[in-house]
Simulated assay, not measured.
Amino acid sequence: MCSLSHEQARALRSRAQGIGGGVRYGSAAEVVERVLAVQAQDVRAAALGIRARADGLTAADVRRALEEDRTIVRAWFLRGTLHTVPSADLPWLLGLLGPHFLRLGARRYRELGLDENLCDRAEAILVKALGDHGPATRAELTEHLARIGVAPRGQAPFHLIRRAALRGLVCHGPERDGEATFVLLTDWLPSRKDGPRGEAAETELARRYLRAHAPASPEDFASWSGLPMTAARRAWRALGAAGHLTFCHIADEASTLPTEHVPEMDLTPSAAPDVRLLPAYDDYLVGYCSRALSVPAAHERQVWPGGGQIRPAVVADGLARGTWTSRTSSTDTDVSLFAPDSEEAAALAKGIATESADVARFLGSPR
């Protein structure tokens, strides 16, 4: 069994995520295929997360991949939350995750007064509206739902739209005047292959998770995916039996590496820190059940202030060194480091300046 220091584990994780070791990808589709899922409740943050892992992309490139090439797609997946995933992976991801989160959501439907009959009628209304009229905003779909007695205010319309997405009927389509729209999945992505099912899908999800997050544990996978620990352990057993796993320790914590990642343990770190400006809710910050390796304990509240927020982070070689902000109406970035000494600040300064300029370029206003 191998043993990793915290620095080695961070180096492996940051390289696997495309945010360290000089690793960058050439297109939005390549980034999303590598990490599998980019958290996307906030469309701007999701695009900036793709930027942080790519070389030379613009926001227009990301939108083109979503709306014209349709190589990536936005819907509800891991933990039942919005993510951008490769379009080719959508069928098996929904086949695995959709039923699980629908079961978990059943109680909430009842609390909202959404019995099975009303849910089925709402589904038929949504499908007909999108089939007849094409892309529609949440507000427009809410008007259609109101005609069958769904209260337009409150959470019921959202949960009915999300239910239809988890059932593989709708997904996000093109933006209209800065607002998201929904489309029929069969219209948006007419050619789809099913992919793995059942336990094979669990195993494939675990394999893809480890490729982008290792070293990691079954507990990390369960936290990231929202699947139960029984599924996580079952997937680990399947990967181990096939010879795909190497077990290791990070300090005193048990962890796992894909066997093909083991040669990377001896990579020499670069002389200058690899700095990335990660957006709010970035996958690197939510991909594990513990934050110990990614954020210094003394500064955890500066990244996770509470209330479900996760702030944009300045990350160097996989370790958060500060936070940053970018106003929606501006491309300027304001960086706040975690009380660094002058030597550390000087080492980070060039990388921060380069990343800040790239954020501006990405959003369309090079300085």
Rank of each mutant, 00 (worst) to 15 (best):
C2M: 14
S3A: 13
S3W: 12
R10L: 13
L12P: 02
S14Q: 05
I19E: 03
G20W: 05
G22E: 06
V23F: 04
E30W: 01
E30D: 15
V32F: 05
V35S: 01
A37P: 02
V38Y: 02
Q39G: 08
A40N: 05
Q41R: 04
D42R: 06
V43L: 14
R44Q: 11
R44D: 12
R51E: 12
L57M: 04
L57G: 07
A60W: 05
D61T: 02
D61L: 03
V62S: 02
R63K: 13
L66N: 00
L66A: 02
E68H: 11
E68V: 14
D69P: 01
L82P: 01
H83A: 01
P86M: 13
A88M: 07
P91A: 13
G95A: 10
P99S: 04
P99L: 02
F101T: 04
L104W: 00
R108P: 05
R108Q: 12
L114Y: 02
L118I: 06
R121N: 00
I125L: 12
D132V: 00
H133G: 09
G134Y: 03
A136C: 09
L141H: 02
L145F: 08
A146S: 15
I148V: 12
P152H: 11
Q155F: 15
R162F: 04
A165S: 15
G168P: 01
G178D: 10
G178A: 05
F182Q: 02
V183E: 01
L185N: 00
T186Q: 10
S191V: 13
D194E: 15
G198S: 09
G198T: 06
R208L: 12
R211T: 14
R211A: 13
R211G: 07
A214G: 12
F221K: 02
S223W: 12
T230R: 09
T230D: 10
T230H: 06
R233M: 10
A235Q: 04
A238F: 00
G240M: 03
A242Q: 06
G243L: 03
I250C: 11
I250D: 06
E253A: 13
P258L: 13
P258D: 09
V262I: 10
M265P: 03
D266Q: 11
L267N: 08
L267I: 14
R276E: 11
D283C: 09
D283H: 13
S290M: 11
S290V: 06
R291F: 11
A292G: 11
L293E: 06
S294G: 13
R301A: 13
Q309T: 06
R311C: 03
P312A: 09
G318M: 04
L319H: 07
T325P: 06
S326E: 04
R327Y: 08
T328S: 14
S329D: 14
S330G: 08
T333C: 15
V335R: 01
A339D: 14
E343R: 14
E343W: 01
A346M: 10
A347N: 09
I352Q: 07
A357Y: 08
G364A: 15
G364P: 09
S365A: 15
R367K: 15
R367N: 14
